[in-house]
């Protein structure tokens, strides 16, 4: 049994345990063993978190849209509340690995979204300093989690995420201050929205990069 064959039956292995051949492959292949371990962990964490904090339908719609755009799912695969629709076996046109990856992506992304609270300064700095980059190089909370996620990647990739995260946080801070200064300023509001979209993109890309 090779890795591809093993991964095609992975959902069934996680659900009900594998047969001798599958277990033998699992023992002999560290990559698949690590994959199984990661997926079991994600599944456990998702179970713990999802019932406590059900995100709004908008969040699920965003995830679904993102998965559509990335070609990971097709129309009608997810309901608005994020529950996977069960299809009869004969309607299946997606591999079990595809399902599992989508579920894993949803779980990881949901954890990030649930815990995502932008850090805004309590006292805005002066207007002259509005566009100065944040001096702090340390990240907190979810941002730190994002950096941990990409830490397994090449050093320049990790650096790219760190720099971008720092810059987008500055963008959010600047735009938020502009909105606070003039709440009727539609351009400032648009900048704030764009800034959050930039940050969302970083989280989405980091999450997809962290998938096996």
């Amino acid at each position: 049994m090779n890795c591809q064959q093993f991964q095609e039956v992975l959902p069934y292995i996680i659900e009900s345990g594998g047969n001798e051949e599958e277990e033998a492959h699992l023992r002999s292949c560290p990559a698949c063993a690590e994959l199984v371990q990661d997926l079991e962990y994600i599944a456990q964490q998702a179970k713990l978190i999802l019932p406590m904090h059900e995100p709004s339908p908008r969040v699920w719609a965003g995830i679904e849209d993102s998965l559509h755009r990335q070609g990971l799912i097709q129309e009608g695969r997810l309901s608005l509340l994020g529950h996977v629709t069960i299809f009869p076996p004969q309607a299946k046109s997606w591999t079990p690995l595809g399902w599992l990856m989508a579920l894993a992506a949803m779980a990881v992304f949901a954890v990030l979204l649930i815990n995502y609270h932008p850090q805004l300064p309590s006292a805005p700095p002066s207007a002259q300093n509005m566009s100065a980059p944040a001096p702090s190089t340390a990240f907190e909370g979810d941002d730190q989690q994002l950096i941990v996620q990409v830490s397994q990647q090449a050093p320049d990739v990790r650096r790219a995420y760190e720099d971008s995260l720092r810059e987008v946080n500055t963008y959010i801070t600047d735009a938020q201050q502009a909105v606070d200064k003039d709440p009727a300023d539609a351009i400032a509001q648009q900048h704030l929205l764009d800034a959050y979209q930039q940050k969302e993109m970083l989280y989405q890309m980091a999450t997809s990069r962290a998938l096996p």
């Binding site: 890795c3 591809q4 560290p30 990559a31 690590e34 070609g71 046109s93 997606w94 591999t95």
Partner: peptide
């Protein structure tokens, strides 16, 4: 891989070793 309806093809680099 390709789906049976030939609507989707997947090409993915896969790391084998640890």
């Amino acid at each position: 891989s390709t789906t049976s309806d030939k609507l989707r093809a997947e090409i993915r680099t896969h790391v084998l070793s640890d």
